[in-house]
Design a protein around this nucleic acid. Structure first.
Length: 469
DNA sequence: GCATGATCATGC
DNA sequence: GCATGATCATGC
């Protein structure tokens, strides 16, 4: 018998879901219901497994036990490991109220201090009732994480107090994000207390990287995989944030050459490799932060930080724009901007490591944390929409060019660097023959695949908005 | 074998 | 000098 006043009893009951599906776990004839709406999974579990009516109260779902139920999808990696399919969305940020709260008495903390997590394996071909439940456990934030989450919560509050709720971005924070929630329609815009501009509705959320950390922790793989930057949580009481800790650790190396740094850490990389500087910075990042080389940087993973190594020339010119992984034409074709990977990327936090050419070598210049300002995110959106349009029409190739060696290259219609101040599209594969499938036949080549492409951040945008600022 | 994080090479 | 299409070394 489920005792809804006891957290232990509820958790124990929930754990019986492991290995089952909602259809097999609930004593209900689901053929009588139609369940397919978004959020349907959690509602169904609440109603038919835990036997209570879903609500949107400010209190946790299991009020007496202080337990908030969250159901969330997993995906499987090629090696069989589980990862979170998405961020974990928590309660809506009430812009008109939260500025009066402090963390300990906040609506966020009241509702989400103790989570009951049900992770199921998502499969687009299945009815949600048939998703297999893989991991079930409760979650309380370890004290070192909680300090970062509290700092994140305060960062979000600060922006609201400055009348900038409409400019909120997930990249503002590390573990706890302010993610958009609800439709893009006008009705999902909200008043904010200190600004005239209406702000898109957002919810507190645990970043995908942080959810992965929870999953690893539940699956007890954690110690094998992760290293930590912050060994002693009390450090955070003195220093303000992850940003300041990382920057302070890098500062002693400013002015040293890449070779000097590599030598100091006994690192050996091929200087001709295109990722030479990235290899060094990645290894040094770990060395400086006191992390073993075969581990990943836990705090960075949890916060989904994008690390980019950049070479700057003497005149502050940055020779190369910044690339990202090749995109999937079919995915873009099927998605809206709101669902897109690129929209997520524009809300991520970046760590840039700059090396500057002093005439005969590249010297470690500085590091900079950054996330994209509101107005520029909209520019990226425009580039994405144009890219999608081109994929939809199948008009990718504009023409051909032959160089003096008789080598033919194609001219493409994808958004070029000259068309937008922030962002563009260019090829990104092993060769021009390295392709990905298309949803619509390319009109010129008559092929159902095309040379891999990716989004790029314009180098002059990087120089003006990040390096020189 | 391919994703990744980059740089190279050509021509205007 | 810079835009653009193409390509490379590495690691898993």
């Amino acid at each position: 018998m489920l005792d809804t006043t006891s957290a232990d009893s509820i958790i124990e009951f929930a754990k019986k879901l492991k290995g089952k599906t909602l259809r097999t776990a609930c004593d209900v004839d689901f053929d009588e219901f139609k369940i397919n709406d978004k959020g349907g999974y959690g509602k169904t579990a609440e109603k038919y497994y835990f036997n209570y009516e879903p609500n949107s109260d400010a209190e946790p779902d299991f009020k007496e036990a202080g337990l908030e139920l969250k159901c969330s999808p997993l995906k499987t990696l090629k090696n069989g490991d589980f990862r979170s399919k998405e961020r974990l969305v928590l309660n809506i940020i009430n812009y008109l109220q939260v500025h009066k709260e402090d963390f300990e008495s906040s609506s966020f903390w009241k509702k989400n201090a103790h989570l009951l997590l049900v992770f199921y394996l998502h499969d687009r071909d299945l009815n949600l009732l048939d998703y297999i439940i893989k991991l079930v456990d409760d979650w309380k934030y370890p004290s070192e994480d909680l300090k970062i989450i509290k700092h994140d919560w305060e960062t979000i509050n600060q922006k609201i107090k400055e009348g900038k709720a409409h400019e909120l971005s997930e990249g503002d924070t590390f573990y706890l994000g302010a993610c958009t929630k609800g439709s893009t329609a006008l009705k999902s815009f909200r008043e904010q207390p200190f600004g005239k501009e209406k702000a898109k509705q957002r919810a507190y959320s645990l970043k995908q990287g942080y959810v992965n950390h929870i999953i690893a922790s539940i699956a007890q793989e954690e110690t094998a995989v992760y290293g930590k930057i912050i060994e002693r949580p009390e450090v955070l009481d003195i220093v303000q944030s992850i940003e300041e800790i990382v920057i302070s650790k890098f500062q002693p190396f400013y002015g040293k050459s890449a070779e000097e740094i590599a030598e100091k850490f006994d690192l050996h990389f091929n200087p001709k490799a295109k990722n030479y500087f990235a290899s060094i910075t990645n290894a040094v990042l770990k060395a400086i932060l006191g992390i073993e080389q075969d581990k990943t940087i836990e705090e960075f993973e949890k916060a989904d930080i994008q690390v980019k190594t950049i070479r700057v020339e003497k005149n502050n010119r940055i020779e190369q724009s910044v690339s990202f992984p090749a995109f999937d034409f079919i995915q873009i074709y099927n998605e809206s901007w709101r669902e897109s990977e690129l929209k997520d990327l524009t809300e991520k936090k970046f760590l840039f490591l700059f090396f500057k050419n002093n005439g005969n070598e590249y010297v470690f210049d500085k590091v900079k944390f950054w996330n994209m300002p509101f107005a520029d995110r909209n520019e990226v959106r425009k580039v994405w929409l144009r890219t999608k349009k081109i994929i939809q029409t199948g008009e990718i190739v504009k023409g051909y060019k032959t160089d003096k060696n008789g080598k033919i290259s194609r001219q493409l219609n994808f958004p070029k660097k000259t068309e937008n101040n922030v962002w563009h599209v260019r090829p990104h594969g092993q060769t021009a023959l390295d392709t990905k499938p298309l949803p619509v036949m390319e009109k010129e080549t008559k092929e159902m695949s095309f040379t891999k492409q990716c989004f790029w951040m314009n180098w002059d945008y990087l120089r003006d908005e990040i390096y020189l600022k």
